[in-house]
Simulated scan of single mutants.
Amino acid sequence: MEEGGTRQQILVHAARLFGRHGYYGTTTREIADAVGIRQPSLFYHFSAKHVILSELVDADLAQTFGRLQEARALDASWAERFHYFLTISSHDYLTLPYDARGYYSDAIFTEPEFESQRLSIARFHEEVRALVASGIQAGEFMDADAEFVQRAITGLQFEGMRERETNASAPVAHRPLQVSDFILRAVLVDPFRLDEVRSATQSRLDGAVSFSL
Rank of each mutant, 00 (worst) to 15 (best):
L61G: 04
L61M: 01
L61V: 10
A62L: 12
A62P: 01
A62C: 12
A62H: 03
A62E: 13
Q63M: 15
Q63R: 15
Q63W: 11
Q63E: 14
Q63L: 14
Q63K: 15
T64D: 07
T64F: 07
T64C: 06
T64H: 10
F65T: 08
F65R: 04
F65C: 00
F65G: 01
G66F: 02
G66N: 07
G66K: 11
G66A: 07
G66E: 12
G66I: 14
G66C: 05
R67M: 14
R67S: 05
R67K: 14
R67Y: 14
R67A: 07
R67C: 10
R67V: 12
R67T: 10
L68E: 00
L68V: 04
L68C: 09
L68W: 07
L68Q: 03
L68H: 07
L68Y: 03
L68G: 07
L68P: 14
Q69P: 12
Q69L: 13
Q69N: 15
Q69M: 13
E70G: 06
E70F: 03
E70P: 11
E70H: 08
E70I: 02
E70M: 09
E70D: 13
E70R: 05
A71M: 10
A71F: 03
A71S: 12
A71Y: 04
R72H: 05
R72F: 03
R72W: 08
R72Q: 13
A73C: 11
A73H: 13
A73Q: 13
A73E: 13
A73D: 14
A73V: 05
A73P: 09
A73W: 12
A73G: 13
L74W: 11
L74Q: 14
D75E: 13
D75I: 04
D75T: 02
D75N: 08
A76M: 05
A76R: 01
A76V: 10
A76H: 08
S77E: 02
S77K: 03
W78F: 00
W78T: 01
W78I: 00
W78D: 04
W78P: 08
A79K: 00
A79Q: 10
A79I: 04
A79T: 06
A79V: 06
E80Y: 02
E80N: 06
E80R: 08
E80A: 00
E80S: 00
E80G: 01
R81M: 10
R81S: 09
R81K: 15
F82A: 02
F82S: 00
F82R: 06
F82G: 00
H83Q: 11
H83D: 10
H83K: 02
Y84L: 11
Y84V: 07
Y84D: 05
Y84N: 00
Y84E: 09
F85T: 09
F85V: 07
F85D: 14
F85Q: 12
F85G: 10
L86I: 06
L86C: 04
L86W: 04
L86Q: 08
T87W: 04
T87D: 03
T87Q: 08
I88Q: 06
I88L: 15
S89H: 04
S89F: 00
S89Y: 01
S89I: 05
S90V: 04
S90Y: 13
S90P: 15
S90K: 10
H91M: 14
H91V: 07
H91Y: 15
D92V: 09
D92W: 12
D92A: 00
D92R: 03
D92M: 06
